[in-house]
Amino acid sequence: MNKKVIISLLVALSVAFLYSYFNIPNKFETEGGSCYQGITASIIRFFLKVCSVLNVISIIFLSKIKPAKFASILSLTIWSIGTLIHSSDNILIGFTYFTPFLLLNILIVIIIFKMPYKLDLDNTSK
């Protein structure tokens, strides 16, 4: 795997993070009534940050395959559970909001599991 793939993954992760962080549906901002209004959005954003950090860790530690696999699977598990919980009452919100980051998590897991054990980070060829 070369540096272009790693940079592409980091850029894709940044775009998915920004989309999920700033385009949170209004439903999550107003859920919970007057006392707990916005707490759902705060919880979702917290887990989004956790999953993003886990994905960055998995990308950074690509040369150490076990930590990369653990971090990427943990991130995928957390975001999948959140997707299932919040998509149960409105599947459209779940599809449009949670899917981009979920697909990126799946892509990272696939890349890490299909990756050879030795990385060629100095190879700049295509």
Rank of each mutant, 00 (worst) to 15 (best):
K3Y: 09
K3R: 15
K3T: 12
I7D: 14
I7N: 11
I7W: 04
V11L: 15
A12R: 06
L13W: 00
L13Y: 01
V15L: 11
F17K: 06
L18E: 12
Y19L: 03
S20D: 07
S20M: 09
F22R: 12
P25M: 03
F28L: 08
E29I: 12
G32P: 01
S34Y: 12
G38A: 07
T40L: 11
I44K: 04
R45W: 05
F46W: 09
F46G: 12
F46H: 13
F46A: 15
F47W: 12
L48A: 06
L48G: 10
V50Q: 06
C51K: 01
C51I: 02
V53F: 15
N55D: 13
I57E: 10
I57F: 12
I60L: 15
L62A: 11
S63Q: 15
K64D: 13
I65H: 14
A68W: 02
K69D: 05
S72V: 06
S72H: 01
I73H: 09
T77Q: 01
W79R: 06
G82Q: 03
T83H: 01
L84Q: 10
L84N: 11
S87P: 07
I91D: 06
I93A: 05
I93F: 00
I93Q: 04
F95L: 13
F95K: 10
T96R: 14
Y97G: 02
Y97I: 04
P100A: 00
P100W: 08
L103Y: 08
N105C: 08
L107C: 07
L107T: 11
L107F: 09
I112L: 00
F113P: 07
M115G: 05
P116F: 02
L121Q: 09
L121I: 11
T124C: 00
S125W: 06
